[in-house]
């Protein structure tokens, strides 16, 4: 028996919005410690990994490990039927070929139930080694989204260059070129606007903007995004999954990490 309840169903909607264009089908691995998902896009250039901690749920029970393979586009459709303030419960019985989704409205007299068929998916699970990254840039998620969108007007790829003075995002295309430079800054009043750069050695790598623009669909989850880079390994774009409660308290309940293989010179 698996049962997981989130008090703010909108968090699940945001997670699905962040991944369902990159991957259409994926398996959730459910264990006593939480739910996780790992999947590559069809061209195997990028990989998304979602992790939700069991203790981030208001109720979490997983008697035995389960793999819930499903069509994420369909899951997204059903989650659209939940109100943003609804409590959302996911239930799966051992050996069943479907999961149940229960939406409880805040008024406490309206309950909706939906079922989705599960799928047997051939999971290609990749081992992601622990890496210590040369460069880590923490910046406003909305700023990163804006930069990726703007530079995609110029070209298909962005070159991210880090030096002592800051981080440069640049693109070149038929019409010309463009770049956005950010230097480290911190604001006591607005920590969500901070840019934090930690760097061991200068580095420059090029990535396809098509994928980065898909990753920025996770922007509503968290005010800051972390980019981690090292030579010859995929870029990691990480968003914390933050649940905002009625009292305006913020609770980190997991993360989404996107990995993107770099473009390299022929």
């Amino acid at each position: 028996m698996f049962e997981a309840k989130l008090d703010r169903g909108i968090v699940l909607k945001k997670i699905l919005d962040a991944i369902n264009q990159l991957v259409n089908e994926a398996s959730w691995e459910c264990t006593s410690s939480g739910m996780s998902l790992q999947a590559m896009d069809t061209s195997h250039v990028s990989l998304v990994a979602v992790n939700l901690n069991g203790d981030g749920f208001s109720k979490f029970r997983c008697d035995r490990n389960m793999v819930l393979g499903m069509n994420l586009v369909n899951l997204s459709k059903i989650l659209k039927c939940a109100g943003n303030d609804d409590k959302v419960t996911i239930k799966a019985a051992d050996g069943d070929d479907k999961i149940k989704l229960i939406f409880e409205a805040p008024n406490e007299y309206e309950v909706s139930q939906y079922e989705i068929k599960l799928m047997n998916l051939d999971a290609e699970y990749l081992g992601i080694p622990e890496t210590s990254y040369n460069v880590t840039v923490k910046m406003p998620a909305a700023k990163f989204q804006r930069i990726c969108r703007d530079l995609n007007q110029i070209g298909d790829a962005v070159t991210i260059s880090c030096t002592k003075s800051g981080v440069d995002f640049s693109a070149t295309g038929d019409l010309g070129n463009g770049s956005v430079s950010l230097s480290q800054n911190s604001s006591f009043d607005k920590p969500e606007d901070n840019v934090t750069i930690s760097m061991q050695e200068p580095l420059s790598q090029t990535f396809a903007l098509k994928y980065l623009n898909q990753f920025t669909k996770a922007t509503p989850l968290c005010s800051q995004v972390t980019l981690s880079l090292s030579p010859d390994v995929p870029l990691v774009v990480e968003y914390k999954i933050i649940e905002e409660n009625e009292e305006d308290s913020k609770n980190e309940i997991g993360h989404i990490r996107y990995y993107l293989a770099p473009k390299i010179d022929d």
């Binding site: 590559m40 061209s43 195997h44 250039v45 990028s46 990989l47 290609e124 699970y125 990749l126 081992g127 992601i128 080694p129 790829a157 090029t206 396809a208 010859d232 390994v233 995929p234 990995y259 293989a261 770099p262 473009k263 390299i264 010179d265 022929d266």
Partner: peptide, 14 residues
């Protein structure tokens, strides 16, 4: 010209 690499170049099957 830059070539796009894929995940399998970096991450192995676990």
């Amino acid at each position: 010209k830059n070539q796009q690499t894929t995940m399998s170049k970096y991450f192995g099957n676990s």
